[in-house]
Nucleic acid binder design. Structure first.
Lengths: 201, 201, 201, 201
DNA sequence: GATGAATGAGTGTTCATTCAT
DNA sequence: TATGAATGAACACTCATTCAT
């Protein structure tokens, strides 16, 4: 004879929208966006379909929201590192290493990001790409700054260097396994190191 | 009022299985494996569903076959470059640049490869991963050879270097557009250059 | 220009699951399980496929549910007759006649039962056979009781006697036509009589 | 470099039509007519589809042919026993026991017979039922002969007695397993015995 | 006699979304 | 706020049969 309120508390420790996002993130990363049904998401979140459609306009919206969180987080961190008061080599190294660490710490978001982006609706995809570009350009500006200052080689266009580095970041979700040989920090240091070594004049 | 013979010639210039593979490759790259229906594939190939299932056991098989072709091609080329009679820096640079060129020349296969692998059935996925590993290991051996010879830095584990490079290769299908600013060869030279510079002792 | 409410009432006089079961029973009996398409069932029930799969996991489930109802009904009736307070000859005769009557009254279920059981999935088939066995054993116990009491001949193993009688029950759906020469009751009396006569010491 | 003729001998020890019928019988009994594909039949027989359609007009024809063989065999045997020079009790008992033995010896045909008859095309079904009726009537005549002679009870209409017995014959394929507790002969004797006991005046 | 590629209509099932309550 | 029954279009796949060779 527990009161409805009591019964509910069990499954409602987190607000419903967050529970849905968490469940969707796990499932999308696990089986991919298309292979995850709305039914599975609501079951994993312990709510009903009606509730999902109350908070999100569509399955697509869920994916978009997941992207939004990651993009905002990464942009904030990049901005912080890039605007720091330190030599450009230091700032680039820190930013390059940090994106590796936060990617590893949110591997689920990362796999979703690099595998499911093209399943977003046309309009939302455009939006995500625009934010992505902003991120990419901030990173490129850092490299160009170093090149102009003569501390980085100009042998390779800064654009390509950014893609070189981010390729390896995207690739992390393919090979990195938590509990593996290296800690996230070690991987990050190595990858940042490779970047900086490649940029030696 | 064309004769049956003429009608048929239009659609039969290439054998049916090849036509199906070509159509599937284009469509999978375009909209992703899950978003491509068998109906779309057979329509694009100008045959009926029955014909597809006469030659391929499943939609999955089609994907596996596409992978198979790419994997065989890449392994052959890597082996050729790695076994060449040249200093290890030369051999690594050539192999690293070549995989970029052939990836760009088969961008469709590449996007499929890096976006749809996890949609393959469990068994076939295992098989592909095994072949993939073989490729990876051949590449790593080349780096280790250079490290032992003292021409490459040992600062980064060879494993990680391979992942660093292949991250950028996978990433190509995300940003490279045919007819862009750089030719495939130029991109390849730059990326191989970055790899070699990062490996300087 | 009937109001939506009125339109709905026409098709909603019985709940959807019951309507589906009724339609499926009629069709399975008529053309057999494999020859009946899900499309035909939902059309006959006046609903859509989605509704069917909302209530039943599969076409197979529908068949299983039909079996379940018959099995439960027959077991209940057999138990009631077998546990009655009467001489064993009376109890056996009543049970033997009753199963004939209820089989005739549910000839559709009966034809399905004896023609489509092997089309049930492995797991469900096992379950049905287990319930079937329970029924068979209760019936056999009755015969053995009479044999021990000396009122039935022991010339034939009780097992075989049960199969003899149930063979003729199964067979009813092959030859009995409602509105035929004999009423269900008459057929039942004759068949029970044959059984009892065969068991005379 | 074996000659075609030699290669062929391996798989052609029996003529193709027989091989097809044997394979079809096994498969139809195993999984049912509808669940057996023409492809499975030709593979089991070691021939191609073209060959099947060369000898048989349709899958349906195969089933009809299987029926034909069984019906002819059973009719012949029944006629032989019924026309024998012996008292009617003896002749009925022998016929009743014999149909049990030959049914057990051809359990595959029997299961097909009682489970797949309704999957035959309308026309062929009519034909089979006609032959079936002829068989049934010969059997019934035997019972009526005994009833007129006063050696069998007239309590039950002969028709119903025939159905009683044949129900148990059909049912054999449900419960009899080769290598079981009783030999075919023992089962036959018991079942014939039950029939004769039921008919005692 | 025999092949096997090809057809085309059909199968059971899934699923994002809606809406009366 | 939230439910869950219901929709309807789409999905991958099957199969008896035909026919040019």
């Amino acid at each position: 004879m527990t009161s409805p309120a009591t019964q509910r508390r069990d499954t409602t420790e987190q607000p419903v929208p967050q529970r849905l996002l968490a469940a969707a993130t796990r499932l999308f990363a696990d089986r991919g966006y298309d292979r995850t049904s709305v039914q599975e998401i609501v079951e994993a979140a312990g709510v009903t379909k009606g509730a999902l459609y109350h908070y999100f306009g569509s399955k697509d919206d869920l994916l978009h929201e997941i992207y939004g969180r990651v993009l905002r987080l990464q942009q904030e961190r990049l901005d912080a590192f890039a605007d720091a008061d330190a030599p450009v080599e230091r700032r680039l190294r820190d930013a390059a290493a940090d994106v590796v660490v936060t990617t590893i710490e949110n591997l689920d978001d990362a796999s979703i990001f690099f595998r499911s982006m093209h399943q977003l609706g046309e309009e939302k995809q455009k939006q995500v790409r625009a934010e992505r570009r902003r991120y990419h350009e901030r990173f490129r500006a850092l490299i160009e700054e170093g090149q102009k200052a003569g501390v980085f080689s100009t042998a390779t266009p800064a654009d390509l260097v950014v893609d070189y580095h981010f390729g390896s970041v995207h690739h992390l979700s393919t090979w990195y396994r938590p509990g593996g040989r290296m800690t996230p920090r070690e991987v990050a240091d190595h990858l940042a190191d490779l970047l900086l070594r490649a940029l030696r004049p």
